[in-house]
Structures are given as C-alpha cells and as structure tokens.
Write a protein that binds this DNA or RNA. Sequence first.
DNA 1: ATTTCCATGTAATTCGTTACATGATTCT
DNA 2: AGAATCATGTAACGAATTACATGGAAAT
Lengths: 181, 181
Amino acid sequence: MSLRYAMLGLIAELDGASGYDLLKVFEISLGTVWQATQSQLYGELARLTEAGLIEVSAEGARRRKEYAITEAGRAELRHWLIDVPPKPNPRDEPLLRIFFLNQIEPDEALDYLNRMADALTERTKELQNLENTVPWEEGGALADNGRLTMEYGKRFLAMRRDWYIWAREQFQARVEAAKAE
Amino acid sequence: MSLRYAMLGLIAELDGASGYDLLKVFEISLGTVWQATQSQLYGELARLTEAGLIEVSAEGARRRKEYAITEAGRAELRHWLIDVPPKPNPRDEPLLRIFFLNQIEPDEALDYLNRMADALTERTKELQNLENTVPWEEGGALADNGRLTMEYGKRFLAMRRDWYIWAREQFQARVEAAKAE
DNA sequence: ATTTCCATGTAATTCGTTACATGATTCT
DNA sequence: AGAATCATGTAACGAATTACATGGAAAT
C-alpha cells in the first residue's frame, strides 16, 4: 500500500504535478528508495481521485492533468506518517544466498564473497559521483530530505561491504579448519 | 523468482523435507531474510516438481510428501548462485517516509526520528536474546551461514540506529536555522 | 472424546511488471 | 515533414496475501 502514500506525499510537495511529472520524479530522485512503473502510477492516480484523497486541479495541453492533494488526503498522509509503523523489508535476496553458500565449492563461495564486496565498492564510487552532480541548492525541503537518504545510502553500502569482507574471513577460517582435519 | 531458489536451496540442504517442514523453516530460521506463506509454498512445490527440479522422494503418514532435489535442480541452484547477480531491494518504506518529513510539524518529525532510533535499540536487544537462545551447535553448515546473517542483522540494526540519531541532529539544526530567521 | 498438531490444497483479491496502443505538441 | 518528447491509458501475466477448507494422527 505504500505506493499510495509515496504518490500522496509527492503530490503534497510538488503541487500541480501530473502523472507524467510523478513518473520522472520516481525515475530520478525517488528511484533508489521506491520504484514504480508508469502503469502503476496512472492506475493509482485514478484510485486516489476516486477515494477523494487528491483531485484534478487543472488540465493543460496534451491531455495533461494536474493533481492537488485534498484535505482528506493530507489527513491520510499525516496519519500514515505518524500512526502507522513502517515495516522493513520482508525479503533480502543477497542475504538469502548466504544461506546456500555451502552448495557450491568453497573456492567459488570465497570468490562470490569477494565479488560482492568489490561490487559494493564500485557502487560507493557511483553514489559519490551522483552526490557531486546533483543540484542540491534547488528543490528546497525535498532536496534536504534527499540528502538524508543519500547519507543513508552511503552508510548502507559501507556496512555491507565491510560485512562481506568479514564474512569472507569467517568462511575462509571454516574452510581451513575443515581441511586441517 | 527468488522464492523458487530459496525452496530449492532448502530442499538441497534439508534432504527429505516436506512442504510443512519448509514452512516451519521459513517461519523460524529464514523469516528475517525471506518470507513466504503456506499458499505460496505448496504452489511452488508443484511447479518445481513439474519443472523437474525436485521430486517426491517418499510419502509418509498424514499425506506427507518428502521432496529431494534432482540433478537438474542442483544445476539450476548453482547457476543462480554463481551467474545471476543478486538484486537489492527496490523499495524501502522507512526511508520513503523520510522524504515527507516536512509534511508534519517539526516537533512531530523529531519525535518520529527519536521513536525510530529507540525501536531499533529495542530490536537490537531482541536479536541479542535470539542469538543467545538459538542452539547453534546442531544444524551444521546451515547454522554456520545463519550465524553470518545474524551478524549482518546486528550491523544493519546498528547502522540504522546511528543514522536515525544523525538524521535527527541534522533535522534539528535545520529547524533551528529556520527559526532564527 | 476432544484438542492440538501435522499436512496439503484451492479460491479470491491485490500488487507489480511488461507490453501494447495512441494522441498531442514541440523542435529541427 | 519527421523525430523527439509529453502525456495518458489498457491488457495480460505473474507474484504475494488472505481466507477458506479439509483430513489424518498423536496426545491429554
């Protein structure tokens, strides 16, 4: 159900946004945190309008429809932010794989852990580049909060890279202990 | 598609497991990393059998069916582990909320950030308790890998708690700067 | 006897992805 | 004139959630 609130929140911040505008925002600034397809967006816009949480505030050229949040929508968004406890992800694919590491050869497993650590180092560089090129000045409050999530992203990458390095060491120690027998 | 491999991997490790057995494993040891419902499991068991990746190795009392991985299944699992790059989560609800923090009052936002940090401290304690009560000796390789994910869980919790504390400071500084104008 | 646990399945609904389809405006 | 971009929608499919339904065996 969170897509609903993601859209509600964006419409609250970016007043007079169209479905197309939202799509761009999802692609660019929200892409790392929440993904949505064009199909989903237009469907949810219809449902939000139906539910009275947003309304068409203007119609522009090329069939463009601009949306604005209603009072009911604002209340709903506020309620979600304050009263509904956020639920963390119930699924983590990279971590799932760790459980099955002994299904491949020890060397392959060590290699896998190395590759994962390297990939995270690579992504850290990319994120750093992104941070350097984003025009932070514009955008106001949304950009300020974007900066918070940028820092989160950096810490998350670093934590995982460190963990892969640590896990590799653990795994290797295990392999060598087994060999010594 | 990862549920498929989660089940394939479990059947490879726990030879002769039934759907019911897998369900228990998902509830207990795999629950923090990958969730699946009973409905999903039985459906996927049928599909995996259909695809020749597993087979019914025995039938027991109470309609129990035990499954074993086939050679084709082993190859498929191995291929997934080695060749298919894992994809990290495209959605993070707690982080999404951060974008809309300025939709509520500054005091409420600060309060929210505090509550999130506290909740993570709480969950750290729970995880520590869990670690102390899990019988690590049994279970062999699966348990060894479980220990790796346990450490991941601890680091992840700590990272998020620290970040919430940091974010709270950032947010407060912003609020005070705005007040000073 | 009856509760509890083992055990498997199906149905209905919602959410997400990919693909298809089309029209209007601006730019070169 | 033609390409690129803006803009909205629908259809088909697959994955996930919730609920329903039932039966056999063991324990109290």
